[in-house]
Design a binder for these strands. Structure first.
Lengths: 218, 218
DNA sequence: AGGCTAGTGACAGCCACTGACAGTTGACAA
DNA sequence: TTGTCAACTGTCAGTGGCTGTCACTAGCCT
Protein backbone atom coordinates (compact mmCIF):
# COMPACT_ATOMS: atom_id res chain seq x y z
CA UNK A 1 0.00 0.00 0.00
CA UNK A 2 3.01 2.22 0.25
CA UNK A 3 3.58 3.57 -3.24
CA UNK A 4 6.98 5.12 -2.94
CA UNK A 5 6.32 6.83 -6.24
CA UNK A 6 7.58 10.35 -6.57
CA UNK A 7 6.97 11.15 -10.19
CA UNK A 8 5.32 14.54 -10.41
CA UNK A 9 5.83 17.29 -7.90
CA UNK A 10 9.00 17.22 -5.80
CA UNK A 11 7.78 15.98 -2.46
CA UNK A 12 4.28 16.49 -1.38
CA UNK A 13 2.53 14.30 1.09
CA UNK A 14 0.52 11.34 -0.10
CA UNK A 15 -2.64 13.24 0.67
CA UNK A 16 -1.59 16.11 -1.53
CA UNK A 17 -0.65 13.87 -4.41
CA UNK A 18 -3.95 12.07 -4.14
CA UNK A 19 -5.84 15.32 -4.35
CA UNK A 20 -3.81 16.37 -7.34
CA UNK A 21 -4.60 13.11 -9.08
CA UNK A 22 -8.31 13.44 -8.38
CA UNK A 23 -8.37 16.99 -9.66
CA UNK A 24 -6.62 16.07 -12.88
CA UNK A 25 -8.77 13.04 -13.37
CA UNK A 26 -11.90 15.12 -12.97
CA UNK A 27 -10.57 17.75 -15.34
CA UNK A 28 -9.61 15.27 -17.99
CA UNK A 29 -12.81 13.28 -17.70
CA UNK A 30 -14.87 16.45 -17.88
CA UNK A 31 -13.13 17.83 -20.96
CA UNK A 32 -13.28 14.45 -22.64
CA UNK A 33 -16.98 14.13 -22.01
CA UNK A 34 -17.72 17.75 -22.91
CA UNK A 35 -15.87 17.59 -26.21
CA UNK A 36 -17.37 14.28 -27.26
CA UNK A 37 -21.00 14.52 -26.24
CA UNK A 38 -21.33 18.26 -25.71
CA UNK A 39 -21.27 20.53 -22.68
CA UNK A 40 -24.97 20.68 -21.86
CA UNK A 41 -25.53 17.03 -22.51
CA UNK A 42 -22.90 16.10 -19.95
CA UNK A 43 -24.04 16.00 -16.34
CA UNK A 44 -21.84 16.47 -13.30
CA UNK A 45 -22.91 13.02 -12.15
CA UNK A 46 -21.44 11.54 -15.29
CA UNK A 47 -18.12 13.25 -14.71
CA UNK A 48 -18.00 12.21 -11.08
CA UNK A 49 -18.94 8.67 -11.97
CA UNK A 50 -16.23 8.49 -14.62
CA UNK A 51 -13.66 9.27 -11.92
CA UNK A 52 -15.51 7.24 -9.33
CA UNK A 53 -16.07 9.97 -6.78
CA UNK A 54 -19.29 11.44 -5.48
CA UNK A 55 -20.92 14.41 -7.13
CA UNK A 56 -20.27 16.34 -3.93
CA UNK A 57 -16.57 15.80 -4.33
CA UNK A 58 -16.61 17.23 -7.81
CA UNK A 59 -17.94 20.47 -6.39
CA UNK A 60 -15.19 20.48 -3.81
CA UNK A 61 -12.61 20.65 -6.59
CA UNK A 62 -14.40 22.91 -9.04
CA UNK A 63 -16.93 25.63 -8.43
CA UNK A 64 -19.09 24.26 -11.22
CA UNK A 65 -19.24 22.89 -14.72
CA UNK A 66 -18.10 26.17 -16.21
CA UNK A 67 -14.97 26.27 -14.16
CA UNK A 68 -13.78 22.88 -15.33
CA UNK A 69 -14.50 23.70 -18.92
CA UNK A 70 -12.50 26.92 -18.70
CA UNK A 71 -9.70 25.57 -16.55
CA UNK A 72 -7.06 25.08 -19.22
CA UNK A 73 -7.93 28.47 -20.63
CA UNK A 74 -7.02 29.86 -17.26
CA UNK A 75 -3.63 28.19 -17.49
CA UNK A 76 -3.03 29.72 -20.89
CA UNK A 77 -4.17 33.14 -19.73
CA UNK A 78 -1.86 33.07 -16.74
CA UNK A 79 0.96 32.15 -19.09
CA UNK A 80 0.13 35.07 -21.35
CA UNK A 81 0.00 37.47 -18.42
CA UNK A 82 3.44 36.34 -17.35
CA UNK A 83 4.74 36.78 -20.87
CA UNK A 84 3.53 40.36 -20.83
CA UNK A 85 5.25 41.01 -17.52
CA UNK A 86 8.52 39.62 -18.80
CA UNK A 87 8.78 41.85 -21.85
CA UNK A 88 11.72 44.26 -21.92
CA UNK A 89 10.80 47.67 -20.50
CA UNK A 90 11.72 49.68 -23.55
CA UNK A 91 9.21 47.98 -25.82
CA UNK A 92 6.17 50.00 -26.84
CA UNK A 93 2.86 48.88 -25.29
CA UNK A 94 1.31 47.39 -28.38
CA UNK A 95 4.55 45.69 -29.27
CA UNK A 96 4.57 44.10 -25.82
CA UNK A 97 1.12 42.67 -26.33
CA UNK A 98 1.83 41.53 -29.84
CA UNK A 99 5.00 39.72 -28.94
CA UNK A 100 3.52 38.25 -25.79
CA UNK A 101 0.75 36.49 -27.69
CA UNK A 102 2.88 35.32 -30.54
CA UNK A 103 5.46 33.98 -28.15
CA UNK A 104 2.62 32.58 -26.07
CA UNK A 105 1.31 30.41 -28.86
CA UNK A 106 4.54 28.46 -28.60
CA UNK A 107 5.16 28.30 -24.88
CA UNK A 108 1.60 27.86 -23.72
CA UNK A 109 1.75 24.34 -25.00
CA UNK A 110 4.21 23.32 -22.33
CA UNK A 111 2.28 24.94 -19.52
CA UNK A 112 -0.93 23.27 -20.57
CA UNK A 113 0.58 19.91 -21.36
CA UNK A 114 1.56 19.47 -17.73
CA UNK A 115 -2.09 19.15 -16.87
CA UNK A 116 -3.86 17.91 -19.96
CA UNK A 117 -2.91 16.79 -23.47
CA UNK A 118 -2.54 19.88 -25.63
CA UNK A 119 -4.92 18.44 -28.17
CA UNK A 120 -7.65 18.23 -25.53
CA UNK A 121 -7.05 21.86 -24.63
CA UNK A 122 -7.52 22.83 -28.26
CA UNK A 123 -10.73 20.91 -28.54
CA UNK A 124 -11.89 22.57 -25.33
CA UNK A 125 -11.29 25.97 -26.87
CA UNK A 126 -13.45 25.15 -29.84
CA UNK A 127 -16.09 23.86 -27.49
CA UNK A 128 -16.08 27.18 -25.64
CA UNK A 129 -16.46 29.16 -28.85
CA UNK A 130 -19.40 27.05 -29.92
CA UNK A 131 -21.20 26.82 -26.59
CA UNK A 132 -23.09 30.02 -25.70
CA UNK A 133 -22.94 29.51 -21.95
CA UNK A 134 -19.22 28.87 -22.04
CA UNK A 135 -18.49 31.69 -24.44
CA UNK A 136 -20.28 34.06 -22.10
CA UNK A 137 -18.24 32.96 -19.11
CA UNK A 138 -15.09 33.08 -21.20
CA UNK A 139 -15.73 36.63 -22.33
CA UNK A 140 -16.32 37.78 -18.80
CA UNK A 141 -13.04 36.30 -17.68
CA UNK A 142 -11.32 37.87 -20.65
CA UNK A 143 -12.64 41.23 -19.55
CA UNK A 144 -11.09 40.71 -16.15
CA UNK A 145 -7.83 39.65 -17.73
CA UNK A 146 -7.81 42.79 -19.87
CA UNK A 147 -8.19 44.93 -16.81
CA UNK A 148 -5.21 43.22 -15.22
CA UNK A 149 -3.11 43.64 -18.33
CA UNK A 150 -4.07 47.27 -18.55
CA UNK A 151 -2.68 47.73 -15.06
CA UNK A 152 0.54 46.00 -15.99
CA UNK A 153 0.93 48.17 -19.06
CA UNK A 154 0.17 51.29 -17.09
CA UNK A 155 2.80 50.39 -14.53
CA UNK A 156 5.37 49.78 -17.25
CA UNK A 157 4.75 53.26 -18.57
CA UNK A 158 4.53 54.83 -15.15
CA UNK A 159 0.92 55.81 -15.58
CA UNK A 160 -2.23 55.71 -13.49
CA UNK A 161 -4.89 53.54 -15.15
CA UNK A 162 -7.64 55.74 -13.82
CA UNK A 163 -6.04 58.98 -14.92
CA UNK A 164 -4.78 58.04 -18.38
CA UNK A 165 -7.20 56.25 -20.71
CA UNK A 166 -4.51 54.90 -23.00
CA UNK A 167 -3.58 51.70 -21.18
CA UNK A 168 -7.14 50.42 -21.07
CA UNK A 169 -7.85 51.59 -24.60
CA UNK A 170 -4.76 49.93 -26.02
CA UNK A 171 -5.55 46.67 -24.26
CA UNK A 172 -9.18 46.82 -25.33
CA UNK A 173 -8.19 47.32 -28.95
CA UNK A 174 -5.79 44.45 -28.72
CA UNK A 175 -8.28 42.23 -26.92
CA UNK A 176 -10.91 42.98 -29.52
CA UNK A 177 -8.66 41.81 -32.30
CA UNK A 178 -7.76 38.68 -30.37
CA UNK A 179 -11.42 37.83 -30.00
CA UNK A 180 -11.93 38.04 -33.74
CA UNK A 181 -8.98 35.85 -34.56
CA UNK A 182 -9.88 33.35 -31.89
CA UNK A 183 -13.34 32.98 -33.27
CA UNK A 184 -12.29 32.76 -36.89
CA UNK A 185 -9.63 30.23 -36.02
CA UNK A 186 -12.08 28.00 -34.19
CA UNK A 187 -14.60 28.28 -37.00
CA UNK A 188 -12.06 27.67 -39.72
CA UNK A 189 -10.66 24.42 -40.97
CA UNK A 190 -7.03 24.71 -39.95
CA UNK A 191 -6.75 24.35 -36.20
CA UNK A 192 -2.99 24.38 -36.09
CA UNK A 193 -0.73 26.71 -34.14
CA UNK A 194 0.79 28.29 -37.25
CA UNK A 195 -2.71 29.04 -38.48
CA UNK A 196 -3.62 31.08 -35.43
CA UNK A 197 -0.25 32.82 -35.54
CA UNK A 198 -0.80 33.96 -39.09
CA UNK A 199 -4.35 35.05 -38.41
CA UNK A 200 -3.19 37.03 -35.42
CA UNK A 201 -0.44 38.92 -37.21
CA UNK A 202 -2.62 39.53 -40.22
CA UNK A 203 -5.40 41.05 -38.16
CA UNK A 204 -3.14 43.05 -35.91
CA UNK A 205 -1.65 44.61 -39.02
CA UNK A 206 -5.12 45.73 -40.02
CA UNK A 207 -5.73 47.88 -36.97
CA UNK A 208 -4.12 50.92 -38.56
CA UNK A 209 -5.94 50.58 -41.87
CA UNK A 210 -9.24 49.90 -40.12
CA UNK A 211 -8.99 53.18 -38.27
CA UNK A 212 -8.14 55.17 -41.38
CA UNK A 213 -10.56 57.81 -42.53
CA UNK A 214 -11.14 56.44 -45.95
CA UNK A 215 -11.18 52.78 -46.84
CA UNK A 216 -11.93 53.15 -50.51
CA UNK A 217 -8.51 54.07 -51.73
CA UNK A 218 -7.12 51.11 -53.56
CA UNK B 1 -53.95 33.90 -40.74
CA UNK B 2 -53.23 37.55 -40.51
CA UNK B 3 -49.91 39.22 -39.98
CA UNK B 4 -50.88 41.75 -37.39
CA UNK B 5 -48.49 44.50 -36.52
CA UNK B 6 -47.91 43.69 -32.89
CA UNK B 7 -45.48 45.46 -30.59
CA UNK B 8 -46.79 48.93 -31.20
CA UNK B 9 -50.10 50.68 -30.99
CA UNK B 10 -52.57 49.52 -33.66
CA UNK B 11 -55.59 47.95 -31.99
CA UNK B 12 -54.79 44.30 -31.59
CA UNK B 13 -57.23 41.77 -30.24
CA UNK B 14 -57.98 41.58 -26.56
CA UNK B 15 -55.90 38.44 -26.33
CA UNK B 16 -52.92 40.21 -27.78
CA UNK B 17 -53.21 43.19 -25.49
CA UNK B 18 -53.50 40.93 -22.49
CA UNK B 19 -50.30 39.18 -23.42
CA UNK B 20 -48.56 42.47 -23.90
CA UNK B 21 -49.65 43.59 -20.48
CA UNK B 22 -48.48 40.40 -18.81
CA UNK B 23 -45.10 40.62 -20.50
CA UNK B 24 -44.58 44.19 -19.41
CA UNK B 25 -45.76 43.46 -15.90
CA UNK B 26 -43.32 40.57 -15.64
CA UNK B 27 -40.49 42.67 -17.03
CA UNK B 28 -41.13 45.55 -14.70
CA UNK B 29 -41.60 43.38 -11.65
CA UNK B 30 -38.44 41.47 -12.45
CA UNK B 31 -36.27 44.55 -12.92
CA UNK B 32 -37.72 46.13 -9.82
CA UNK B 33 -36.98 43.07 -7.74
CA UNK B 34 -33.54 42.52 -9.27
CA UNK B 35 -32.43 46.08 -8.68
CA UNK B 36 -33.71 46.25 -5.14
CA UNK B 37 -32.80 42.88 -3.65
CA UNK B 38 -30.24 41.67 -6.16
CA UNK B 39 -30.35 39.31 -9.12
CA UNK B 40 -29.40 36.05 -7.47
CA UNK B 41 -31.48 36.71 -4.41
CA UNK B 42 -34.59 37.05 -6.54
CA UNK B 43 -36.37 33.85 -7.52
CA UNK B 44 -38.54 33.33 -10.55
CA UNK B 45 -41.35 32.35 -8.21
CA UNK B 46 -41.18 35.77 -6.60
CA UNK B 47 -41.44 37.51 -9.95
CA UNK B 48 -44.34 35.33 -11.04
CA UNK B 49 -46.11 35.84 -7.75
CA UNK B 50 -45.68 39.61 -7.97
CA UNK B 51 -47.59 39.53 -11.26
CA UNK B 52 -49.90 36.80 -10.08
CA UNK B 53 -49.16 34.24 -12.73
CA UNK B 54 -47.66 30.78 -12.43
CA UNK B 55 -43.94 30.21 -12.65
CA UNK B 56 -44.60 28.25 -15.82
CA UNK B 57 -46.12 31.29 -17.45
CA UNK B 58 -43.04 33.35 -16.69
CA UNK B 59 -41.01 30.91 -18.74
CA UNK B 60 -43.47 31.19 -21.59
CA UNK B 61 -42.67 34.90 -21.87
CA UNK B 62 -38.97 34.84 -21.16
CA UNK B 63 -36.40 32.14 -21.76
CA UNK B 64 -35.04 32.66 -18.26
CA UNK B 65 -33.97 35.12 -15.62
CA UNK B 66 -31.11 36.38 -17.76
CA UNK B 67 -33.37 37.28 -20.64
CA UNK B 68 -35.62 39.49 -18.52
CA UNK B 69 -32.66 41.22 -16.96
CA UNK B 70 -31.16 41.98 -20.36
CA UNK B 71 -34.40 42.82 -22.11
CA UNK B 72 -34.17 46.60 -22.06
CA UNK B 73 -30.55 46.34 -23.15
CA UNK B 74 -31.84 44.51 -26.18
CA UNK B 75 -34.13 47.42 -26.95
CA UNK B 76 -31.25 49.85 -26.70
CA UNK B 77 -29.03 47.66 -28.85
CA UNK B 78 -31.66 47.38 -31.55
CA UNK B 79 -31.99 51.14 -31.49
CA UNK B 80 -28.24 51.54 -31.89
CA UNK B 81 -28.14 49.09 -34.77
CA UNK B 82 -30.85 51.09 -36.53
CA UNK B 83 -28.96 54.30 -35.92
CA UNK B 84 -25.92 52.78 -37.61
CA UNK B 85 -28.00 51.73 -40.60
CA UNK B 86 -29.45 55.19 -40.99
CA UNK B 87 -26.16 57.04 -41.18
CA UNK B 88 -25.42 58.85 -44.46
CA UNK B 89 -23.42 56.66 -46.86
CA UNK B 90 -20.52 59.04 -47.26
CA UNK B 91 -19.54 58.97 -43.58
CA UNK B 92 -16.37 57.10 -42.70
CA UNK B 93 -16.88 53.83 -40.77
CA UNK B 94 -15.61 55.01 -37.43
CA UNK B 95 -17.50 58.25 -37.77
CA UNK B 96 -20.67 56.24 -38.35
CA UNK B 97 -20.18 54.32 -35.15
CA UNK B 98 -19.22 57.36 -33.15
CA UNK B 99 -22.22 59.37 -34.21
CA UNK B 100 -24.59 56.44 -33.87
CA UNK B 101 -23.77 55.97 -30.19
CA UNK B 102 -23.73 59.63 -29.33
CA UNK B 103 -27.03 60.14 -31.06
CA UNK B 104 -28.23 56.92 -29.47
CA UNK B 105 -27.71 58.19 -25.93
CA UNK B 106 -30.44 60.70 -26.66
CA UNK B 107 -32.95 58.71 -28.66
CA UNK B 108 -32.65 55.42 -26.83
CA UNK B 109 -34.54 56.99 -24.00
CA UNK B 110 -37.73 57.17 -26.03
CA UNK B 111 -37.46 53.61 -27.29
CA UNK B 112 -36.92 52.25 -23.81
CA UNK B 113 -39.46 54.45 -22.11
CA UNK B 114 -42.22 52.82 -24.11
CA UNK B 115 -41.66 49.63 -22.18
CA UNK B 116 -40.14 50.60 -18.86
CA UNK B 117 -39.26 53.82 -17.02
CA UNK B 118 -35.88 55.00 -18.26
CA UNK B 119 -34.60 55.21 -14.72
CA UNK B 120 -35.31 51.51 -14.23
CA UNK B 121 -33.39 50.73 -17.40
CA UNK B 122 -30.41 52.65 -16.06
CA UNK B 123 -30.50 50.81 -12.78
CA UNK B 124 -30.72 47.57 -14.71
CA UNK B 125 -27.56 48.42 -16.59
CA UNK B 126 -25.66 48.99 -13.39
CA UNK B 127 -27.01 45.73 -12.11
CA UNK B 128 -25.65 43.96 -15.17
CA UNK B 129 -22.20 45.46 -14.75
CA UNK B 130 -22.06 44.39 -11.13
CA UNK B 131 -23.51 40.90 -11.49
CA UNK B 132 -21.01 38.40 -12.94
CA UNK B 133 -23.61 36.09 -14.45
CA UNK B 134 -25.38 38.98 -16.15
CA UNK B 135 -22.20 40.62 -17.31
CA UNK B 136 -21.17 37.37 -18.95
CA UNK B 137 -24.45 37.05 -20.80
CA UNK B 138 -24.31 40.72 -21.75
CA UNK B 139 -20.81 40.40 -23.20
CA UNK B 140 -21.82 37.44 -25.29
CA UNK B 141 -24.73 39.32 -26.73
CA UNK B 142 -22.48 42.28 -27.38
CA UNK B 143 -20.18 40.02 -29.36
CA UNK B 144 -23.12 38.98 -31.51
CA UNK B 145 -24.14 42.57 -31.97
CA UNK B 146 -20.63 43.47 -33.05
CA UNK B 147 -20.71 40.80 -35.71
CA UNK B 148 -23.95 42.22 -37.04
CA UNK B 149 -22.60 45.74 -37.07
CA UNK B 150 -19.48 44.57 -38.85
CA UNK B 151 -21.67 43.19 -41.59
CA UNK B 152 -23.57 46.44 -41.87
CA UNK B 153 -20.34 48.40 -42.10
CA UNK B 154 -18.94 46.01 -44.65
CA UNK B 155 -22.03 46.37 -46.79
CA UNK B 156 -21.83 50.16 -46.62
CA UNK B 157 -18.31 50.01 -47.95
CA UNK B 158 -19.08 47.33 -50.46
CA UNK B 159 -16.81 44.80 -48.81
CA UNK B 160 -16.96 41.14 -47.88
CA UNK B 161 -16.60 40.68 -44.12
CA UNK B 162 -14.79 37.41 -44.61
CA UNK B 163 -12.37 38.76 -47.16
CA UNK B 164 -11.49 42.13 -45.64
CA UNK B 165 -10.57 42.21 -41.94
CA UNK B 166 -11.18 45.92 -41.54
CA UNK B 167 -14.92 45.94 -40.82
CA UNK B 168 -14.61 43.50 -37.95
CA UNK B 169 -11.45 45.12 -36.65
CA UNK B 170 -12.95 48.58 -36.69
CA UNK B 171 -16.06 47.40 -34.88
CA UNK B 172 -14.01 45.42 -32.37
CA UNK B 173 -11.90 48.47 -31.58
CA UNK B 174 -14.99 50.55 -31.18
CA UNK B 175 -16.75 47.91 -29.10
CA UNK B 176 -13.75 47.60 -26.85
CA UNK B 177 -13.80 51.28 -26.08
CA UNK B 178 -17.53 51.19 -25.43
CA UNK B 179 -17.03 48.43 -22.92
CA UNK B 180 -14.54 50.50 -20.99
CA UNK B 181 -16.72 53.56 -20.87
CA UNK B 182 -19.77 51.55 -19.95
CA UNK B 183 -17.98 50.02 -17.03
CA UNK B 184 -16.42 53.22 -15.80
CA UNK B 185 -19.72 55.01 -16.07
CA UNK B 186 -21.53 52.38 -14.03
CA UNK B 187 -18.78 52.37 -11.44
CA UNK B 188 -18.55 56.11 -11.24
CA UNK B 189 -20.70 58.53 -9.30
CA UNK B 190 -22.41 60.44 -12.09
CA UNK B 191 -24.97 58.22 -13.78
CA UNK B 192 -26.37 60.86 -16.04
CA UNK B 193 -26.62 60.83 -19.82
CA UNK B 194 -24.20 63.74 -20.27
CA UNK B 195 -21.68 61.88 -18.16
CA UNK B 196 -21.64 58.84 -20.42
CA UNK B 197 -21.52 61.08 -23.48
CA UNK B 198 -18.44 62.84 -22.25
CA UNK B 199 -16.74 59.62 -21.23
CA UNK B 200 -17.47 58.14 -24.63
CA UNK B 201 -16.05 61.01 -26.63
CA UNK B 202 -13.05 61.35 -24.35
CA UNK B 203 -12.13 57.69 -24.71
CA UNK B 204 -12.81 57.51 -28.41
CA UNK B 205 -10.41 60.39 -28.84
CA UNK B 206 -7.76 58.33 -27.11
CA UNK B 207 -7.73 55.50 -29.61
CA UNK B 208 -5.20 57.23 -31.81
CA UNK B 209 -2.84 58.16 -28.98
CA UNK B 210 -3.16 54.72 -27.43
CA UNK B 211 -1.95 53.13 -30.63
CA UNK B 212 1.01 55.47 -30.97
CA UNK B 213 4.47 54.02 -30.77
CA UNK B 214 5.66 56.12 -27.92
CA UNK B 215 3.52 57.30 -25.08
CA UNK B 216 6.16 59.20 -23.16
CA UNK B 217 6.30 62.29 -25.29
CA UNK B 218 4.58 65.02 -23.37
C1' DA C 1 -74.21 29.68 -29.87
C1' DG C 2 -70.64 26.50 -30.44
C1' DG C 3 -66.36 24.80 -32.15
C1' DC C 4 -61.40 25.88 -32.38
C1' DT C 5 -57.16 26.86 -30.30
C1' DA C 6 -53.92 30.00 -27.93
C1' DG C 7 -52.71 30.68 -23.32
C1' DT C 8 -52.59 29.12 -18.59
C1' DG C 9 -52.05 26.54 -14.16
C1' DA C 10 -50.95 22.43 -11.77
C1' DC C 11 -47.93 18.69 -11.44
C1' DA C 12 -43.90 15.88 -12.13
C1' DG C 13 -39.23 15.62 -13.01
C1' DC C 14 -34.19 16.77 -14.35
C1' DC C 15 -30.10 18.94 -13.14
C1' DA C 16 -26.76 22.31 -11.02
C1' DC C 17 -25.45 23.48 -6.74
C1' DT C 18 -25.26 23.89 -1.33
C1' DG C 19 -25.44 22.86 3.72
C1' DA C 20 -25.08 19.51 7.31
C1' DC C 21 -23.36 15.51 9.32
C1' DA C 22 -21.03 11.32 9.87
C1' DG C 23 -17.49 8.07 8.36
C1' DT C 24 -12.74 7.34 6.56
C1' DT C 25 -7.98 8.09 6.09
C1' DG C 26 -3.43 10.44 5.83
C1' DA C 27 -0.27 13.16 9.07
C1' DC C 28 2.20 13.32 13.09
C1' DA C 29 3.50 12.97 17.88
C1' DA C 30 4.06 9.88 21.72
C1' DT D 1 3.03 0.93 16.75
C1' DT D 2 -0.54 3.38 18.17
C1' DG D 3 -3.68 7.01 19.11
C1' DT D 4 -5.28 11.61 18.17
C1' DC D 5 -6.36 15.23 15.09
C1' DA D 6 -7.60 17.30 10.93
C1' DA D 7 -8.46 16.85 6.20
C1' DC D 8 -11.29 14.47 2.70
C1' DT D 9 -15.08 12.20 1.32
C1' DG D 10 -19.84 10.15 0.81
C1' DT D 11 -24.69 10.43 1.89
C1' DC D 12 -28.78 12.83 2.44
C1' DA D 13 -31.80 16.51 2.11
C1' DG D 14 -33.14 20.68 0.09
C1' DT D 15 -33.33 24.97 -3.09
C1' DG D 16 -33.91 27.00 -7.42
C1' DG D 17 -33.83 27.25 -12.57
C1' DC D 18 -35.94 25.17 -16.22
C1' DT D 19 -38.85 21.71 -19.23
C1' DG D 20 -42.56 18.36 -20.63
C1' DT D 21 -47.24 17.08 -20.20
C1' DC D 22 -52.03 17.58 -19.79
C1' DA D 23 -56.38 19.19 -18.67
C1' DC D 24 -58.88 23.41 -18.59
C1' DT D 25 -60.22 28.22 -19.45
C1' DA D 26 -61.13 32.01 -22.32
C1' DG D 27 -60.73 34.91 -26.56
C1' DC D 28 -61.73 34.31 -31.54
C1' DC D 29 -64.20 33.13 -35.62
C1' DT D 30 -68.11 31.42 -38.27
Amino acid sequence: METTADETSPRAGLRERKKQRTREALLRAALELFTTQGYERTTVDEIAEAVDVSQRTFFRYFAGKEEVALFTQGVAEARFLDAVRERPPQEAPLEVLRRAVLEGWDTIGEAVESVVPLELHMRAYQLIESTPALLAAYLRRSAELEEEIARVIAEREGLDVDADPRPRVAVAVFGGVMRITGRLWSEGADHSIPAIRELTTAYLDQVGPALAEKWRTE
